[in-house]
């Protein structure tokens, strides 16, 4: 090996090699590097002794602590479930009026329900439950299928027009597209619906048109929406006289609804949420409308 030269800055010798002007010093490896190499290796060896670490053919070294992530997580889930059971057990056992009469328990319901709602329901109904076009406002107390907790919890279980065997089924026919009503009849019945007071746009049609519309309404709509147009909860048909509109209460939207019909969907939550969780959600949803009123 060629003899190196001494670097004036560090006082170290070079290795004597040179690559296109680049030289290397022969500086010894600093002690601290060796120290940390030893320390980290010792930590690793210690960790291997305590924890599952090295494969041995069909098995592996289990480690002195006997830790296994699978049993650990099972135990943690069990413990957490047991801890929550202090109040979830009461929710399971008590009926709705009893729970609602217990302010402390309702406090817990609202707390747990808020997160459940945002994780599962907010995508359609909005983070505050106020809905949007095509999705009902849950704070309005304008219940399609009924607003008592038992009904709400059943809606959560089976869904609406869902894949569940016992799903709630509701359909508004496409009166225009399917040729049940003529365009003139649709215009008339729309005028009638707007005259009922709930529409966001007052009707501009003549009284004659409105009365013609009423005849169309009686012949085609009362089966679901009722003679008073206040809707029927056993078929999930909305009230047409109030200010709550799922698909919009302006003239154009009402027209589109009559022409194209509707078959809104809500999934069944039976497979996804536990009975307790659905019960909490029903109570939470109910509390949203109560808070508003």
């Amino acid at each position: 090996m060629e003899v190196g030269e001494r670097d004036p800055v560090t006082g170290q010798l070079t290795t004597g090699h040179e690559w296109n002007g680049i030289k290397e010093l022969y500086t010894p490896v600093p002690r601290v590097v060796i120290l940390f190499l030893v320390l980290t290796t010792l930590f690793a060896v210690g960790y291997w002794i305590l924890m599952p670490a090295w494969p041995l053919g069909r098995t592996y070294t289990k480690g002195l602590l006997g830790v296994d992530q699978k049993t650990t997580v099972e135990r943690q889930v069990e413990e957490a479930t047991a801890e929550r059971a202090l109040w979830t057990k009461r929710i399971d056992e008590m009926d709705f009026p009893a729970i609602r009469a217990d302010p402390a328990l309702m406090e817990t319901v609202r707390e747990a329900g808020a997160t459940l709602f945002k994780d599962n329901c907010a995508a359609c109904h909005g983070a505050r439950g106020t809905g949007g076009k095509g999705f009902p406002d849950l704070t309005a107390a304008a219940w399609l299928w009924g607003g008592n907790p038992e009904t709400i919890v059943e809606t959560l279980r089976v869904g609406i027009n869902s894949a569940h065997d016992e799903t709630r089924v509701s359909q508004m026919l496409a009166f225009g597209r399917d040729g049940i009503l003529s365009l003139a009849q649709i215009n008339d019945v729309r005028a009638y619906v707007q005259s009922l007071g709930g529409s966001t746009e007052p009707t501009v049609a003549s009284p004659e048109a409105v009365s013609r519309g009423k005849e169309v309404f009686v012949a085609n709509c009362v089966a679901c929406h009722g003679e008073d147009a206040k809707g029927k909860q056993d078929v999930g048909a909305p009230d047409l006289t109030d200010a709550n509109w799922i698909y919009g209460g302006d003239s154009q939207s009402i027209h589109t609804s009559i022409y194209s019909g509707h078959q809104g969907q809500m999934p069944s939550w039976e497979q996804r949420l536990s009975t307790t969780q659905r019960k909490i959600l029903a109570l939470y949803v109910l509390s949203l409308s109560e808070k508003r009123s």
Binding site: T14, K23, E24, L25, Y26, T27, P28, V29, P30, V33
Partner: peptide, 10 residues
């Protein structure tokens, strides 16, 4: 020059 050839190896 490179500070340490030996450190490079490690």
């Amino acid at each position: 020059p490179i500070y340490s050839y030996r450190l490079s190896i490690i």
